[in-house]
């Protein structure tokens, strides 16, 4: 994970996107989080050989990305980062399952390839929807939504802290690594060096936690965190959530591509 620094710079970029102003950005974060969750549920409920039925679901991330002005290249890059792991687990499918299930012209397609394709498609869909969600809501918005949807406050505050201090600490770690690299003469870091290096970082982290706690105490913190609430769920939010949920349900029950394909190929006959 040598490019972690870059990944975090990306993280900042995404947050900036999240704090922009657009109709989508102004929606209640809860509507967006719930719609994304419904989307994930609908997509993952498709069987292992389903490919065509998944395609219409692309409409969700694609339309949100466009309306929320999330750059396409950026979106693709983020999805690309998430691909390898699942492909690793799925890549054996074509080997393990060689039964021919489909015949497209002269090309026989085995169940393994179908399930592999289905898995890859699901991955692209869910990864895209998660990236788009944060890009049109901001991390803070997502946290607020989680809190109002019943997540424990302490946990939501914890996510906020993590998000906030990741930037500080990653920057500190990057400085330490640069300082080491300048004097390392090209030698790789050994696990023996890891202890002192990461240890110093840990110590500084610990001290910082104490200073933060003091800063919290100085402003009247007494162990309980209070959060400022935002405007409530409106008609627009309900419409957004409702419309997408209905769309997911319909697309889950009716295989749209198959229907259209049948009409087209039927017409051709």
């Amino acid at each position: 994970m040598a490019n972690l620094g870059d990944r975090f710079r990306d993280l900042g970029r995404m947050d900036t996107m999240g704090s922009r102003e657009s109709g989508l950005h102004r929606l209640d974060p809860r509507a967006k989080v719930l719609a994304t969750a419904a989307f994930a549920l609908a997509v993952s409920s498709f069987g292992r050989y389903e490919v065509a039925g998944l395609l219409p679901f692309m409409a969700f991330p694609v339309s949100l990305a466009i309306l929320g002005e999330v750059p396409g290249g950026y979106l693709l890059k983020r999805i690309g980062l998430a691909l390898p792991f699942v492909l690793l687990l799925g890549v054996l499918n074509p080997v393990l399952d060689r039964e021919v299930l489909l015949q497209v012209g002269p090309l026989p397609i085995t169940g393994g390839w179908l399930s592999f394709l289905s898995m890859a498609l699901k991955l692209v869909l869910t990864a895209a929807s998660a990236v788009v969600l944060v890009a049109i809501t901001s991390m803070d918005g997502v946290c607020q939504a989680l809190e109002r949807l019943g997540m424990p406050q302490v946990f939501v505050v914890q996510i906020g802290f993590l998000h906030r201090y990741t930037f500080v600490l990653v920057e500190e770690a990057a400085r330490m690594l640069r300082a080491r690299e300048l004097r390392s003469n090209g030698h790789d870091l050994t696990h023996r060096e890891f202890g002192p290096l990461a240890g110093h970082l840990l110590l500084r982290t610990w001290d910082r936690a104490q200073r933060i706690h003091q800063a919290m105490l100085a402003r009247g913190f007494e162990g309980e965190v209070h959060l400022l609430r935002r405007p409530s769920f409106g008609l627009q939010d309900a419409l957004f959530l409702g419309a997408w949920c209905v769309a997911f349900l319909v697309l889950r029950l009716v295989n749209l591509p198959l229907l259209m394909g049948t009409l087209v190929s039927g017409g051709a006959q």
Partner: peptide
């Protein structure tokens, strides 16, 4: 009102 030396310690919210 206490203003700490390192704003990164004082500004802990998102």
């Amino acid at each position: 009102g206490m203003v700490f030396q390192d704003p990164d310690d004082q500004l802990f919210s998102p």
